[in-house]
């Protein structure tokens, strides 16, 4: 299968309305998914001689994605409150590595509860929650750098 054929195939699949097409030949396998916004193409090439033909696959599939209607599968987050970082620094979920996390997903937090530390230049800032609710999602990994206004937590008001 050459690049032209793959492009044709992607167009065909995106117009057909199906979510996923998998084609498997003797030493070639391709899967085209159209259910979410970016079209994902998985191709595996088990044998070296076919490598040349298969190589462009990785860059080919982006174009038709736009024509694929995006299915709004994402969770509705509008009812949640986003807690953002008040400053640039490093985000910590506990006061030291051997201490428990300030909060975990599912925890209820009250106004004034410390939810994380942001450290900048050896100044440690304990961040208090300004809302009360349940932690739905923690958007930053422990010990990662954060920017000003970067979303840190999603909280469901209760």
């Amino acid at each position: 299968m050459d690049i032209k054929q793959i492009q044709e195939l992607i167009k065909f699949v995106s117009r057909s309305g199906v979510n996923e097409v998998a084609i498997e030949q003797e030493n070639f396998k391709i899967t085209i998914k159209t259910n979410q916004a970016p079209t994902v193409v998985h191709a595996t090439v088990p044998q070296a001689p076919l490598l040349q033909a298969a190589a462009p696959v990785a860059t080919a599939p982006t174009a038709p994605a736009a024509s694929t209607p995006a299915v709004p599968a994402a969770e509705d987050t509008s009812k949640y409150i986003t807690i953002k970082s008040p400053m640039i620094g490093t985000f910590y979920r506990s006061s030291s590595p051997d201490k428990p996390m300030f909060v975990n997903v599912g925890d209820e937090v009250a106004t004034g509860k410390v939810i994380c530390i942001i450290e900048a230049m050896k100044l440690f800032n304990e961040i208090e929650s300004e809302v009360s609710g349940r932690i739905v999602k923690i958007l930053v990994d422990n010990a990662s750098p954060v920017e000003y206004d970067q979303p840190l937590f999603l909280v469901e008001p209760i």
Partner: peptide, 23 residues
Amino acid sequence: PNDIYYNKKKLGGILIENTLTGS
């Protein structure tokens, strides 16, 4: 940023911990 030194040796240190509400 905040170690206390004398004769290039450490005399002490400082650890600042703030509590933030909003900004």
